[in-house]
Nucleic acid binder design. Structure first.
Lengths: 318, 318
DNA sequence: TTAGTTTACGGCGACCGTAAACATA
DNA sequence: TATGTTTACGGTCGCCGTAAACTAA
C-alpha cells in the first residue's frame, strides 16, 4: 500500500520524539482520537506495527525505529525544499521558535529581538521562556540559547558569548553589609538562590583569578525562586547577593545598579551557545537570527573571554 | 504552509517526468481535472509556481526543478523505508513492472518468469512488452531488459548476457535458396526486416571473425514488421533470412529449426542489460528477479562471449 | 483514581468525477 | 480541428471532534 498523508508521518515522528500519542496529537492540533486512528491507518498501510501500545503508554518498535529514521530524513528534505523556494524571495519569512532563560531574555535579548523583527517584517517570533532545560527536539524549538557546556550529540551549536558567573549586589546592600574579602565570608551574607528541579542551588564554586586557590562555599538566604529574573530583581532591590552569568548582569554592572563583589575571584565558566536541532537544513531566518545575536554579543564585547573587569589577569584554562 | 498530501508530490514528479498533466493523472488513476486542482493546491501551499502552463501544454519552472529534485529524494527515502520493512518479512511481496522486447520475452523469458513467480508466490508481475525503446523513468518501470550499449546516466545497469547478431534461416529456405558465402550475396536473398520508428532496418553490418574485413550490406525483402517476434516467426516458416540477437534464436539454432548462415562472419555486439531507474533503493523483489535471470543466462552459457559456434576463433574487440 | 489510548458515532468538509468551456498546437 | 488544461458543480467518502469505555500506572 502506498503512503498518502504526510501528517501521518509527522505524527509517527512526534510519537517517536515524545513517546506520547496525546502529546503528538497536540503538536498537530488534532485530538488524541484522531491521532490514534491516523497512526493505526499508517501502520495498516505499512503492514507493520510501529508502536507497541497499551491503554496508558506507547513505545516504539524496532520496525518503528527504522521507519521513523527514514521518514525523518524524508521530511527534512521536504522542509529543505520549501526553505530553498522561500529563499528565492529575498526577504525572510516564517516563524522562529526561540527558547531562552527568563533573565537572559528580559535583560539582554528583548531589545535585540525587536531590532531583528523590525528588520525582517515577514518573520514571526514565538518565545519559549523557561529556566528549566527544554528539549530542543521534543519541544520543536528552532533555536535555544543555553549556558554551559553541551552534551547532546543530536544538536548543533554555535558559541555566541563567553562568560563566567560573577557575584554582585546593589550599592545599598553593600553599604549596609560591607564587602566580603573572601568567598567564605558569603556565609554570613544574605544570598539569593535559584531553584532547579525543586532544589535550591546553594553551592557556589570559586577560583582565584591567578588560579592559586579554589573553594566552594555553602550560602544561605531567605529568598529563592525558580525564575532567575525574579532573583535578579531581588538583587537590584537590595535584598541580597546575586551569583549569575556576567552576561545577564552586564548592563547593571556598567550602570552601577549592581556592584561586583570578590573581583579577585571568578565563578565557573558559562559560555552561551545557540543550539539547533541537527537537521541537515537550518532555515535562512534562523541562521539570520543567530548571526544577528552573535553580532550584538560581539559589539558589546561579550564574545571574548572577559570574566573580570581587570581583564588580562585572567588565566585561560586549557 | 505545510505540505500534507504525498500524492501531490507524486503528481509533481510525474509532471516533471512526462511533461504532461494528463499522463501524470493517469499514472495516479485520477482525472486530469483532479490533477489540475491538486497541482494548483500544491503550488498554493508552496507559494511558488512549479509549472508554467498553457491550455495545451506545461513546462517546469526553475523553482519546479529545484522542488522536484528534493521531493524525488524524499519519496525515494520513503520507498526505501517501506522496502526495509517488507524485507523484514522473509518472503518477497509486491509488483514488478518489467519491460522487454517481444521476441526476447516470448522465446526466452516467459519460462524463466514462470519459475520466478512459482518460487515467490507474493510477487506480481506486470509485463510491458514493446519493441520500441521505453523510457524507464517516464513509464515507471522497475526493470527493463535492453540490447546494446547504454547511454542514459540516470540509470543503473547490470549485464545479463553477451551476444551478437547472427544471420539465420529455416532449413527449407536454405534448401530452396542455398547458402550465401559472403554477406554481399544477401542482396539476392529474401531478407526479413524489422521496422523501427516507421523505417525498415535494411543496413546489416558484418565483420569477419578474424577481423580482416568488414562490410555493410543493403538487404531487400517483401516482409517487414515492427514486432520482432513476427519477423522471427516468418523466418521459422521459411519466408526469408533473419538477422537478430543470438539470444533470441539460441533455442532454434540448437534444435535445428533455424540454421546459421555466414558462420565466418559476425554481426554487431548486442550485450543484454538489466536496466533500473537509478533510485538509491532497489526493492528486494527486483534484485531477486535480476539475480534469477542472470543465473538462467549463466546456465545456458549465454553470459559468455560466444558469437559463433566455432567458439574460440572469435576476436574480442578492445 | 487518574491519565492516556481506544472505540463509537455523527456531521462537516474536502476531493473526486462528470461535463463543458477554453485555448493552443 | 483536436488535444490537453481549466472551471463549474454535485455527490460521496473520509476524517475529525465529541463522548464514553477501557485499562494500566
Amino acid at each position: 500500500m502506498k503512503l498518502e498523508n504526510i501528517d501521518e508521518l509527522r505524527l509517527a515522528l512526534g510519537c517517536a520524539d515524545t513517546g506520547s500519542l496525546t502529546a503528538s496529537a497536540a503538536r498537530l492540533h488534532i485530538t488524541p482520537a484522531a491521532a490514534s486512528a491516523s497512526l493505526k491507518k499508517l501502520e495498516a498501510r505499512l503492514g507493520v506495527r510501529l508502536f507497541e501500545r497499551s491503554t496508558r503508554s506507547m513505545r516504539i518498535t524496532p520496525a518503528g525505529e527504522l521507519f521513523v529514521d527514514y521518514a525523518r530524513r524524508a521530511l527534512d528534505l521536504l522542509d529543505e525544499a520549501q526553505g530553498q523556494l522561500q529563499e528565492g524571495g529575498s526577504q525572510l519569512v516564517g516563524a522562529i521558535r526561540l527558547a531562552a532563560s527568563s533573565d537572559l531574555t528580559r535583560r539582554v535579548l528583548l531589545d535585540w529581538l525587536d531590532d531583528f523583527l523590525a528588520a525582517h517584517p515577514g518573520v514571526e517570533l514565538q518565545l519559549a521562556v523557561s529556566d528549566t532545560l527544554t528539549d530542543v527536539v521534543r519541544d520543536q524549538v528552532d533555536l535555544a540559547l543555553r549556558y554551559g557546556e553541551l552534551d547532546d550529540s543530536r544538536l548543533v551549536a554555535r558559541r555566541l558569548a563567553t562568560s563566567r558567573r560573577v557575584t554582585c549586589a546593589s550599592p545599598d546592600y553593600v553599604a549596609r553589609h560591607g564587602l566580603p574579602s573572601h568567598p567564605s565570608e558569603l556565609a554570613r551574607h544574605e544570598c539569593l538562590s535559584f531553584v532547579i528541579r525543586g532544589r535550591r542551588v546553594l553551592q557556589w564554586p570559586y577560583a582565584r583569578n591567578d588560579g592559586s586557590e579554589t573553594c566552594t562555599v555553602r550560602v544561605h538566604g531567605r529568598r529563592s525562586a525558580d525564575d532567575a529574573e525574579i532573583v535578579h530583581r531581588w538583587a537590584l532591590a537590595g535584598h541580597g547577593v546575586l551569583c549569575k552569568s556576567e552576561i545577564d548582569v552586564h548592563a547593571h554592572l556598567a550602570s552601577g545598579a549592581l556592584v561586583r563583589l570578590l573581583p579577585d575571584w571568578q565563578g565557573i565558566r558559562l559560555p552561551l551557545h545557540a543550539v539547533m536541532p541537527s537537521r541537515r537544513f537550518v532555515p535562512a531566518r534562523v541562521r539570520a537570527l543567530v548571526d544577528h545575536l552573535a553580532e550584538r554579543f560581539r559589539r558589546t564585547g561579550m564574545d571574548l573571554e572577559a570574566g573580570t573587569p581587570s581583564g588580562p589577569s585572567l588565566t585561560s584554562e586549557p
